[in-house]
Design a binder for these strands. Sequence first.
RNA 1: CGGGGAGUGGCGCAGUCUGGUAGCGCACCCGGCUGGGGGCCGGGCGGUCGCAGGUUCAAAUCCUGUCUCCCCGACCA
Length: 443
Amino acid sequence: MTRLTEYLLPTEKQAPADAEAISHKLMVRAGLVRQMGAGIWTWLPAGWRVHQKVVQVVREEIDAIGGREMLMPVLQPAELWRKTGRLQIDELFKLQDRKGSELVLAMTHEEAVTFHAAQTIDSYRDLPLILYHFQVKERDEPRPRAGVLRTREFVMKDSYSFDRDQGGLEERYALHVGAYDRIMARTGLRFYRVESDVGMMGGIGAHEYMAPCAAGEDDVVIGEGYAANVEVARNDPRVQCVAGADGGVVAGGKAGGGERWTRDGQALTLEPAIEIGNIFKLGTRYSEKLGATYLDEHGTALPIWMGSYGIGPARIVAAAVEQFADEHGIAWPVALAPFAVHLVALGRPATPERDAADGLYDTLLAAGVDVIYDDREAGPGEKFADAELLGCPVRLTVGRRSLESGEIELQLRRGRRDGPALPLGGEPAALVRALDELCQSLP
RNA sequence: CGGGGAGUGGCGCAGUCUGGUAGCGCACCCGGCUGGGGGCCGGGCGGUCGCAGGUUCAAAUCCUGUCUCCCCGACCA
């Protein structure tokens, strides 16, 4: 039942005064999210639907490479983190229970999953294995910013692979690359997979998935068949960075300064982007510290080779808003839209046109179409404006004109183009088929 | 953590300099009109002016302290 009169979709004409990023402004204005504190956000019903659509895409692809979904706790004993040497990380929230026992709020789950691997994985016969969950992460960020782009609490899909040797890890890593590529492609986002700095993680290889957008926090260097983080690009002997004609002074770290980048003489471009996923080859760092070993065929105990793979659904949502918004609002990719179809009823209650819209809604609902129905007593301008703000890919309109023409008007959100009108009162099966085909054809 | 800015009803704001019973637009409620792009008229509800202390006959306004939020940078396992 998704009639707007029975829903909570608190849209606003004006964005919060302190909002800067497009996704921040639009997600609040469209009634998807609301803020509670710095970097602390609530997902309202329509926003959570979008989030869950990302989650489902991710779930399907990680399941497809053999991932096993589970759920690990956020509240964890500090001792586990002391063992891995991460207890003193500033971003880690620490607390005590009533007895004074030290606890932490997990910012990631390597400790937890390795703790269980140590308990439950005994033999080479138990390997390889991929475990994952969707769970809240808590991070005491020095500076939360840009709506849901950088928050102190957020849901992450994190998977962990367990192998008997480095070769196995490379295989599990390659499987994740494939899954991540498919996930990003399915979301409809523009994205790059870039080599990243393994940095403090001390791992043996890592990639980041970056979605270019104006609110991006990192710069990505892009060329024909090449994409890398600026940090990585700077260390690439084939890449040259020279100051531009305007003096080359870059204001801050954001792209758009006067630098000119080339690789083997070929021009590269610099784009701001946000990190929407990352994958790490951890090696045996955590398994050694937490005693996660297996016995091989000779009865020898060996450390398990691990990989760690994260995706932030909220960032994918925000990146989609950033990439596809126009001056009227959000324009979701089909895969992420809170609803595939936004049905607008124009007539007042108890008019023939309203009856027709009600009837159409019932038909769509019965056929399982993912539809939101604007049955409010509001003017057409307000309804159209809200529909464009919310950004569902297909808008259907039923009003007096529909009765005269016998057609349901159809507009596509992307580009606000008129789509093929559908017959009003026609065969429901044919109507649903036409809508399905249309949605399949949309990005 | 360094620099800058801001806290007044759900959202956006004025009022603060120069102290004198808190105001506007939107939203919301009631009535009426309108009905294909945020429409119009009338009547309403809603605010300890972030918090604490101080000055004063009187504080949103002046003083002190404190909390919170935003932006830029640093940071980002």
